[in-house]
Every structure is written in structure tokens, then in C-alpha cells.
Amino acid sequence: MKPTRILTVDDSASMRALLLHALTTQGFEVEQAEDGQQAFEWLATNEVDVVITDINMPRLDGFGLIEQLRDTARHADRPILVLTTESSDEKKRRARDAGATGWIVKPFDAEKLATAVRRVAH
């Protein structure tokens, strides 16, 4: 069976390395982008099953990325999980209103993250 392909979007190189290790260990195929803008441009010509994005990023933040993807027919139903240190209800509500599929608070648990990815992957 083809592995689930994930795009992680985070401006922290350390967090990208941690996510890469955690997700590939769980059997996922992982692509990575450094901010929302790079992710959006990459997704214009590439396909993934699930996007996992941080919120606070330069150029285009997580909210902006979600909004732009939801305005694109190809990505209107793409599962998008927000993975963030933000814990405020206001930010969570904003992510949900923008079209996020789920909200995960850092520091993440690799097992819980993998379970969430499997649940939302189409």
C-alpha cells in the first residue's frame, strides 16, 4: 500500500528535523517547507495527503496558508492539521474558521500525531 504523504510546514529547522524523524519512523512519507509561502508554491504543482502546519511563520503564516489553500479547488478538502505552541481559544477558533481540520498543541506526542494523521488522511 502506498504510504501516506505529508507536507510539514515550520520555520524552525529543529522542529522540521524532529517532525521528519517522528513521522518517517511511523511509516509516513514526508515533505517539508520552511513557511506558508514556500508550502503554497510547492503545493501548486505537488500532491500530498495531509498538511501539518505551524502558525507563527515569516512571509505567510499558518492562518494565511490555510485560507489560500481553501480558496484553491484542488486543496479545498485537503486535511490540514495545525501544530502549534499557541494555546489560546481565540487562535484555535481562527484556525477552525480558516478551514483547519484539526489542532494539535506542541510539544507533540508522536503516537498521537500519527493517529491524528491516519484519521484525517483520505
Binding site: R96, G102, W103, A116, R119, V120
Partner: peptide, 12 residues
């Protein structure tokens, strides 16, 4: 594991 580390997942 950190006390505040919930890693909680909420699907909308």
C-alpha cells in the same frame, strides 16, 4: 515527559 506536554489533538 513535560508536565504541560499534552500533545492534545482536537479534530474540528
Amino acid at each position: 515527559r513535560p508536565q504541560s506536554a499534552s500533545g492534545d489533538v482536537e479534530l474540528f
